[in-house]
Amino acid sequence: MANELNQIMIIVLIILAIALAFSIGANDETLSALVGTGALKFKIALIIGGTAIGGGMILTSGGFVAKTVGSDILGEGLVYTTSMLLTVLISSILWLIVGSFAGIPLSSTHALIGSVVGVIITYSIFQGGVDPQTAFNWEKLGNVILSWFISPIFGLLITYILFKIMAKLYLTRLKGLNQIEISENYFKWILVIAVIFAEIWVGANSGEALGILYGLLDNGSISFEQYYLYAIFCGIFAFLGIYIAARYVIKNLAIQMTDSRPSEGLIIQISSAIILMIATLLSLPISHSHVIVFCIIGINLAQKKEIETKSLSRMAIYWVLTFPIAAIMAGLLYFGLMSIGFI
């Protein structure tokens, strides 16, 4: 009976992980900068972007961020149980739903890692008999949390510096609107490459779905072959997420971006892609949206444009709160399930 329940939970987890991959694609707004410039037809842009995000996810599924979330973050000898993974997923999904209803942009990465921490602490204290101090790979966890603070700041700095260099070498030399239009037309095509590059690393750094599957691989619930098969499914569903669901958000944002300059979009995309690439190669799951927001701030600072500090500080509060709240929610949920004898 317990084995059957475990099998059901594994199937549910695989389905939820694939659904999560779909939602990663569905929430991706990277393409809006490209669609806004009108460089590619909308459907073609969706296909290229979807392929890049799905491809990035599949190509890095063998390790990197997925391994960090699904295994490396835990202390030596500790592996996720299926019920832990299920609680982590349910808790982070709940917190993201609450955020969506409240109209707060939250990071799914922060919510997931927060939920992992909450579940593992509860497990260590009440169930596993594990010392919470050895339940985590503190170095890895510390690096992950540190990267959440460093990555946006680096995003801001890279964007600022890139813009200043480009302005000094080229942009300030453009005198008339015709010249600006011609050069922006070239930037539009470079932006296509930059967005594809960015999408690959967005997919590669979106470790939530693959992290869960890696957890199942790590605890022996699924084999390597199965893991890679499901990783491919995740890639395909991320593609479908963009193609089916993200199109509305992308279209709306693209309409607002029609008068934004492709050169600015290019700098933002290159900067965020560089940050995501470095973080992925260092196996650190970071928040793409946080990086993008800081890249936009960087470009505004470089042009001495006004920055809306009020909404930014509101956003910052929720960013900081996501991790502890997700941890508390997941901890309580796990404790609740434990108390009723489900786990």
């Binding site: 806004g36 410039t37 009108g38 609107l177 600006i180 239009e181 922006e184 037309n185 029609t258 008068d259 934004s260 300059r261 492709p262």
Partner: peptide, 9 residues
Amino acid sequence: SKLIFSKAD
């Protein structure tokens, strides 16, 4: 026109 960013202006 394909001049997206300056079209409205």
